[in-house]
Every structure is written in C-alpha cells, then in structure tokens.
Design a binder for these strands. Structure first.
Length: 589
DNA sequence: TTAGGGTTAG
C-alpha cells in the first residue's frame, strides 16, 4: 500500500491521518524521508500531528526528533508540537516551546498556540504559567476567542479557583454547550456540588438550544448526584437522558450504574446494568464497586467471576472495588487471595495505594494490626496519610494505644494531620481508660488550635437536599424537628436505647457537653426530619460527610425497628442499611 | 493558504 503513494498529497494525507500504531507510522516516516515528501509543509504537519495523537505519552521523544529535524518549522508545526507536549508526561516543555515562540518575533503565537500552552499548564498544575498566558491573551487581543477562553476557564477550574473560572465564563462572547459544560465540570471539580444541580436545572429550562444539556452535561450531573447521594435528582437526570435518547452511550450507562449504587439504590443499578446492550470493564467495575460500598461482598465476588467468564480483563480499579468489597464484608481470606492473584502472573497488576489501603483495612478489621503495620512498611511507594489513618481507625476500634501513637507520629511527619486523627487517638485513649492521656492530648489540641471538621448530614426530599450540622437551628422547620426528635428519643428509650457517652468523637470539654452534642448530631436531625415529613413506611436516606459514630449507629438501628422504617445512611466510606433493628455492616463490633 | 483548538464514565 505504501508503495502506491503518488505525488497526490490528498491521498497521502488521508493515508497518514488513518494510520495507527508505531510500526505503521515508522514505515510511513521512512517513505516520507525517502521520497523527500517530508519537506512538504502540509504533509509534515499531518504526520507530526498523527504522531502526537496516536502514540502513547512516553513516545514524545519520537515527535521531538521529527520536529527538531525540520529546519524551518511554521507556526502550525510548533503548535502541533506544543499540543504533543500537552498530551505527554512532560507538559512543561510545551510551555517552554510556547515562550520560545513568543520571543521569536517572526512567528507570533496565535490563539491556538495559547490554547495548547494552557493545556500544558493545566496538565502540570502551573497556575503561574497560566496567569502569564491570561495576561498575554489581553495584550494579544484574543479576548474574543471563545474557544481559547473556554480553555482558560478550565485552567482556573483545574487550579481550584472556581471564582476566576466563573469570571472568565462571564466574559466569553459566544457561549456554546462546551463552555457551559466546562462551568459544570468546574463546579464538580471544586466540590460545588449543589451548584451543579442548580445549573443543570437552569440549562434544562433554557429555550436556547446551545444551552440545553447534552450527554456530557448529564454525565457530570450524575457524578454530582453520586457525590451528594441525591437519588431523586439522579432519577430526574436519568429521565432526561431517556427523553433525549442519549441513553445508549456506554459512558452514560456506566455512570448511571455508579450513581445509583453510590446513592444506595442497588435495585436501580442492577436494572440499568442488566439492560445494557454492551458492557466493558468500566461497567463491571462500577457494579463491583457499587456492591462493595453497599456491603454486598459475596455478590461483588460473584460479579468479578462472571466478568472473567465474559473474557473481560480486570484493571487496577476493578481490584480496588473487589478488595474493598472483601474488607467491608470482612472476607479476610478471600481478600488476601485476590490480592495475591492480582500480583501474580494471572493479572500482573502492581498494587497501588488504594489496593494497599484495602488490605490494611482488611487486616485491621481482622485484628491483625501488626501484620498491617509491616505491610505498610514493606510497600515500595511512600505511604500516604490515608493509609496511616486507616490503621489509626483500627487502633481505635481494638484499643491499640502504643501502635496508635506510632501511627499518628507518621501522619504528623507527613504534615498531613487532621483534627479527626487527634480525635481517633483521643478515642483510643478513652476506650482503654487512659484518662490522663486524654487530658494531655486535649490540651495539646487546644495549644495547636486544632478545630474539628463540622459534621453534616443531608436528606433529599423530592429533589431538594436539606442539610443539617450539629445542633443546627437554621432549618425553617427547626422547631418541629426538635420536637419530633424529643419524641423519638422518648420512644427509643422505652425500647431500650441508651445514649452512649464514652466513645466517639468531638473534642468537647466535658462529658455533659458531649452528651448534649451526641443528642443532636446532624444525622439524628436529618433522620428526625425524614420521619416528620415522609409518610410511614418510606425509606429514609441520609448522606453524611464523616463516619457515623457508635451512638448514632445505635440510634438508627432503634429507629428502623420502633418506627418500622428502612434507614439508609451513607457515611464517608460506605452505606449502612438499617432494617428491623439491625444493620448490614460490620463496622461496630 | 487553510485548518487546527475547549467539556466527558469505574
């Protein structure tokens, strides 16, 4: 085929554009050199462009060699090279090339160069470089270029500066659906989850077709719903997807599976999963991870085995889901077996921090804390604070004081300590009655001015999310809620519920104060509100930012029995399904 | 000489 290359450039270019794989590109390169067609600017441009788009990142060297052999690169050649760097593992080089281009007055960069250079800054997290480009956009008079401004928005979004991203959005002269989607993705990335939902609604009700949500908008909105646990809103997005026939896209179906399972609705997740015409490794991983966080460990393992039967190879993330399923359901032997299989010749996957985290959690729950500690010590990469924190949690549960002290020193060493870590250590001390240590640590916390992160709980009713914090008085129906809570407390006491003072949470100064705060933890307010406003028998779904404390866990158990309700609480790491006075989880031994 | 470029699943 290559021999048939004639002097017809069109034919040649279409051949280049459709070429795939390194071998194929090398063959083409050889022919281009032999025939001197490489000198043709257009041919060269397309060849370089193909190289940078189709080769894996580390082969940037090939593109570099080809580029450096060109004696008089045009602007479009340089732009292609900047793009190649932006896709590579060395994006800083792309920014350098852009600056070199600026210094060379014969080839002033155009908006496209700035756009690719911004991509480089986004990839390397270089806000300073991005700011320089922003300044030049003003001086170069590129402010009317909507596409360039959209990339600029993405820079601020990636650098956690959503306010400036919004300012740029306001300046875009012609906003299309992509600019709107970048705004949505900015909110999502910067944890402005509620803004995503508000914006989605706004876009849905817009008459202008350029603003109507497309598949990407829906994808982002579904992720926001998953983060918030906003099941009703997620269902609305699902309905919108069906109405607009985006439904068959694999990425949307996969996100729906993930959204439903992360909102605690496995029935709906299965429904979507079973209806899919085509499933890839992402679909199976979403299902396995969903089963894992909902505490269905055995089912997750079954799904994994079924996936293998379909001939689909697991990836890193699949094992993260599978191992976390084992740890949440305390399937210690199975978890260790899968960890070994993952590393063996069968799958040849090198464990990452997430995998180690799952195994540390698994061993921690099985009271094998020394083994967990040695595993962390044996890791080839540096342990992060989350790994240590997992072990610290296990120390708290099993009352391992000395190990707990050692672990927190590692966290402090990483300069990553959070208030919650001190609270865990505090609770470790108090669980074994080391009161003098408790006092000592409390004064240290005061000295260091450590403030605990306020806990919040959210409950969604007909698409509106109601949020509560500890001792919240801001809700318009607060009086009724507190009255209801008092009534619930009374009912539960009759059934045998006792407030637990000694364990969990918050660096409060006196037992008295502690008991008070326990009575009004945010999840209790949310549950009371749920009972107040929903008809009997309705499932109550609460999402919480921290881990549920033992007392609230008990409270929910009693509520599910006394009020005959299914209560589903999603805390920081998993779901608790309360029914008939018991919980599906193994978290509180 | 022109076109090229921005968002996106586990």
């Amino acid at each position: 085929m290559l021999k048939s290359i004639s002097s017809s450039d069109d034919h040649l270019i279409s051949l280049i554009v459709s070429s795939t794989g390194k071998l194929h590109l090398r063959q083409i390169h050889a022919v281009l050199l032999r025939t001197s067609l490489i000198r043709n600017s257009d041919v060269f441009h397309h060849f370089l462009s193909r190289l940078s788009l189709s080769l894996i990142p580390r082969d940037i060297n090939y593109s570099c060699r080809v580029f450096s052999q060109r004696s008089n690169p045009t602007l479009s050649h340089s732009n292609t090279m900047i793009r190649a760097f932006s896709l590579s593992k060395n994006p800083i080089e792309g920014f350098r090339l852009f600056r070199a281009l600026r210094r060379n007055s014969s080839l002033p960069p155009n908006p496209l160069s700035s756009s690719f250079a911004l991509k480089c800054c986004i990839k390397s997290g270089d806000l300073l470089g991005g700011l320089q480009i922003h300044g030049k956009i003003y001086s170069d008079g590129f402010l009317s270029d909507s596409l360039l401004l959209t990339t600029l928005m993405d820079l601020y979004s990636a650098c956690e500066n959503s306010n400036d991203a919004c300012k740029v959005f306001d300046e875009i002269p012609q906003r299309d659906i992509v600019s709107w989607n970048v705004l949505v993705s900015c909110y999502l990335r910067n944890k402005r989850t509620r803004d995503v939902l508000v914006l989605f609604d706004k876009m849905k009700n817009e008459v202008d077709d350029c603003v109507k949500p497309d598949g990407v908008t829906c994808l982002l909105a579904l992720q926001a719903c998953a983060n918030l646990g906003a099941l009703d809103f997620g269902k609305q997005v699902h309905a919108f997807i069906d109405e607009n026939r985006f439904g068959n896209a694999l990425n949307l179906s996969n996100t729906l599976v993930s959204m439903y399972s992360r909102c605690g609705s496995m029935d709906k997740a299965y429904e979507v999963f079973n209806r899919m015409d085509e499933r890839n490794v992402v679909s199976w991983t979403a299902m396995i991870s969903g089963l894992a966080i909902n505490g269905f460990g055995k089912e997750a393992i079954e799904a994994f085995n079924e996936m293998l039967k379909f001939g689909i190879s697991p990836e890193e993330q699949t094992f993260t889901g599978l191992l976390s399923a084992c740890s949440h359901s305390r399937l210690v032997d199975e978890g260790m077996m899968f960890f070994d299989r993952m590393r063996s010749g069968e799958f040849k996957i090198k464990p990452n921090l997430h995998h180690y985290g799952c195994i540390v959690d698994l061993l921690g729950r099985a009271r094998q804390l020394d083994k967990a500690y040695s595993l962390i010590k044996s890791m080839e990469m540096k342990p992060d604070s989350t790994i240590w924190r997992t072990l610290l949690g296990a120390c708290r549960v099993h009352g391992y004081v000395e190990l707990g002290e050692r672990v927190i020193s590692h966290i402090i060493e990483l300069k990553a300590e959070e208030a919650g870590d001190y609270v865990l250590l505090l609770n470790t001390y108090s669980s074994v009655g080391k009161w003098e240590k408790v006092t000592e640590l409390r004064s240290l916390m005061k000295e260091k001015r450590i403030q605990t992160k306020p806990g919040w709980s959210a409950i969604e009713l007909q698409g509106t999310v109601h949020e509560f914090i500890v001792d919240d008085v801001s809700h318009p129906r607060m009086e009724e809620i507190y009255k209801k809570l008092a009534e619930i407390n009374q009912q539960l006491k009759i059934a045998g519920y006792v407030v637990e003072f000694t364990s969990e949470l918050h660096n409060l100064d006196s037992e008295e104060e502690k008991g008070h705060a326990l009575t009004y933890h945010s999840e209790k307010l949310a549950i009371a509100f749920g009972i107040l406003v929903t008809p009997p028998g309705t499932t109550i779904r609460v999402t919480k930012n921290l881990r549920t404390c033992v007392d609230c866990h008990n409270f929910a158990k009693f509520v599910s029995d006394v009020y005959d309700r299914v209560v589903i609480v999603r805390d920081r790491s998993r779901f608790h399904h309360f029914e008939n006075g018991s919980c599906s989880c193994n978290d509180f031994w």
